[in-house]
Design a protein around this nucleic acid. Structure first.
Lengths: 205, 205
DNA sequence: GTCTATAGAATGATAGAC
DNA sequence: GTCTATCATTCTATAGAC
């Protein structure tokens, strides 16, 4: 005997899976295009064309352009969270300075990897847009996770953290603005880490 | 007896002066509006309205919207040049670390003073726009001047300079993004200066 | 869920009268 | 030099047929 609730629920799930898959394709297309035009140049028509749809069909998957930006913003921070987890696992048995240097280098490369992602996460590149509360909550969560990992690497307390974020984000910004495909500032990561840790030690004294 | 060439030339000059004055008013209006909407949100119609003109009249003073951006970009760098000259005169008799700390603090405040100026000078906030060769040349000149002044403050050589620009621009970026009207990162300027100079000393050894 | 058609509102820029 | 009128384009978003 058929279990209709089961069948119904699995049919719903299949439909939802298809829905989510299309959403995924739209997001991928949006990232691809934003990489070329800059995040502020993203156009829904072009996103639709990239996935082989007409523009109004996108509204089945995202309520508005702002909602698409929200999804991209949150996704960026989730990817950052995953990356941070990988990095900290990876540097577990290094000396503190080497560990922090590696993390800073990987951080710069994370920013460099997708300039559109960098723009939506860390700059105010989109006129009139800011993340919704929900999207902002994701960023706050991931930021706190990163802060906890940094604490383990010797960057502790709000002042240390503010100086660290300034240095790390500054290296990334210079890298992207002046040498987007190179490593001119990535190479400075070990020096920057050493500099930060020495300064923290000095201030502890 | 009238000197017509003189008269002609002074009439021309008067007309040009008036032209330049209107240009000045347009630029001021553009800065004012860009401060509110972000540099990427600037609209020629609104600029015209702000100066009491119709939009097409702007084309007597600027060939295109991009030309207006060029003028703003170059003006930003000229202002930076002037500011740097003031700062270095101002810190002439301080200890090296205090001098550099003061300069970094003033630099952050320069960025904070006009976010529109910060955006057009240091970020790629305008989709599809980049400075013309002429405008870029202005920025290169002023940048080299700043580099020369920094050398006098103990930041010498390309590696020092890259690290300095990363730290200084990072502090400014964090200040603008997270505390645009406050001084949370400005307060870190002395620490950052001391940190940079200590690290430079360490690397010299 | 996808489409066509279109609303409705901006935009930068040009033509040509005055 | 300034204006009105307008071109030509682009955009997000909605209505409604299928």
């Amino acid at each position: 005997m058929l279990d209709f609730s089961q069948t119904d629920s699995s049919e719903l799930t299949a439909r939802q899976r298809r829905h989510n898959q299309t959403r995924r394709e739209i997001l991928d297309a949006a990232w691809r295009l934003a990489e070329q035009t800059g995040i502020a140049g993203l156009s829904l028509r072009e996103v639709a064309r990239e996935v082989g749809m007409q523009a109004p069909s996108l509204y089945t998957y995202f309520d508005s352009k702002d909602a698409l930006f929200d999804a991209m913003f949150a996704e960026g921070y989730r990817q950052l969270g995953e990356a941070v987890a990988e990095w900290t696992a990876q540097v577990g048995d290094l000396e503190p300075a080497d560990a922090l240097g590696t993390v800073i280098g990987l951080w710069i490369q994370f920013c460099q990897q997708s300039i559109a992602r960098y723009q939506i996460m860390f700059t105010r590149a989109i006129p009139g847009w800011q993340p919704s509360e929900e999207a902002y909550a994701v960023s706050a969560t991931e930021y706190q996770r990163m802060a906890a990992e940094l604490e383990a690497l010797g960057v502790s307390g709000p002042e240390d953290l503010d100086l660290y974020t300034a240095v790390a984000s500054g290296l990334a910004a210079q890298q992207i603005a002046n040498d987007p495909t190179g490593d001119r500032w990535v190479r400075l990561a070990p020096t920057a880490a050493r500099m930060l840790l020495d300064d923290i030690a000095r201030r502890r004294r």
